[in-house]
Amino acid sequence: MLKNIDTQRGETGTAARTAAARPAQKANQIYDVLRRSIVLLDMPPGSVLAEKEICLRYGVSRTPVREAVQRLAEEDLVEVRPHSGTYVSKIDFAVAEEGFVIRRALEIESVRRCAERVTPEGVARLDGLVRRMRDILRQEALGDYLEVDDAFHGLIAGVSGYPRIWKFIDMAKVHLDRMRQLSAPVPGHLAEVTEQHAAVVRAIERRNADQAELAMRIHLDGSFAVMRSLYQDDALFAGQAP
């Protein structure tokens, strides 16, 4: 009898935990969808984020939507204005630049270790992503570039033996990513970025940490210079770059 009661309690506890996990899972899903839309500028700065419409679109209650919005607000991606509504935040240059500084510092360490630890298989995977970037440029599918770009840098972190580095970078660079998306249509920019990626791979393949660091610095600093030059539209940005 005791065994049956314990079993029943265990089953009940499992069911309760599963039911409790569902709203959290839905909140995570809504958060991921909204965050991606904001980063890719499908929801540009200043646009309205209507909770009721999101609930209807994804067939969820207000609770997971509000939890997702709260997480976005904590990242300064949305602004909740009492008695007014929720709006996608403008891009704050200071926050984006801070993300760039954090990213550069961590990526330098990542690429140096990658050059020391890389295998032929790792080089082949990096080369495959560079080829994918070139295909995207030929197809003019610029909306797909950012994801492959992130996969490239994430793989470097993975090969380095410190995969969590990319998780920290991804959290720090969310505002920078919106500026990256703005810079994508600049004529010739992504073509240059792609060749910079290729230069990073060649340095890694030679297992030369100093050259890999230099190639990564050139790539990141050059990309940020292009993004900085676009920082002038008051409709998208909060303030002006110093």
Rank of each mutant, 00 (worst) to 15 (best):
A94S: 07
V200G: 04
A238H: 11
L77Y: 10
T194C: 14
M1W: 07
L2M: 05
N208Y: 02
R113S: 11
L2N: 07
P64W: 06
D6W: 03
S223H: 04
N28W: 09
A27E: 05
A68V: 04
R178K: 11
R132E: 15
I108K: 09
Q181H: 14
A115L: 03
G10S: 06
L146W: 08
A235P: 00
D32F: 12
Q196P: 08
C55I: 00
S183N: 08
K26R: 14
Q211N: 04
R66L: 01
D135L: 12
I5V: 15
T86A: 00
P82R: 13
S61T: 10
G143N: 09
E11R: 13
A96H: 05
S37D: 15
R81A: 09
A172S: 12
L214I: 04
A172D: 03
G188D: 02
K3C: 06
F224A: 00
D135R: 12
L34G: 04
H83G: 07
D92K: 07
H83P: 00
E107V: 03
P185N: 04
G59W: 09
D150Q: 09
I169R: 00
P44T: 01
V65N: 00
G222P: 07
R164N: 11
Q240P: 00
E97H: 14
F168L: 11
D92M: 07
H83C: 05
L34N: 04
G161C: 06
T18A: 12
G99Q: 01
L230Q: 10
G143W: 07
F168D: 06
G161Y: 03
H219R: 02
A209M: 03
Y162D: 12
A115Q: 03
A24E: 14
V39I: 15
T18C: 00
Q181C: 13
E147H: 12
A19V: 02
I5R: 11
R180S: 13
L129K: 09
R178I: 06
A212C: 07
Q70Y: 12
Q240Y: 12
R117N: 15
V80M: 11
A20H: 08
G10W: 06
A198M: 05
M43N: 08
H197T: 09
A238K: 09
C55L: 00
R104S: 05
F168I: 11
I5E: 14
R22D: 08
A172I: 01
A172K: 00
V159P: 02
H219Q: 02
P64Q: 01
G154L: 01
A19D: 06
S84W: 08
L190K: 03
V123M: 09
S61M: 01
G239N: 10
V33M: 12
L142D: 04
L129T: 08
I102Q: 13
Q232S: 15
R178L: 13
A157W: 01
L176T: 03
E213I: 04
A225Q: 07
L40S: 12
C114A: 14
E116H: 09
V226T: 11
R112E: 05
E107F: 12
R202I: 03
E116S: 14
K26Q: 15
R113H: 14
Q211F: 09
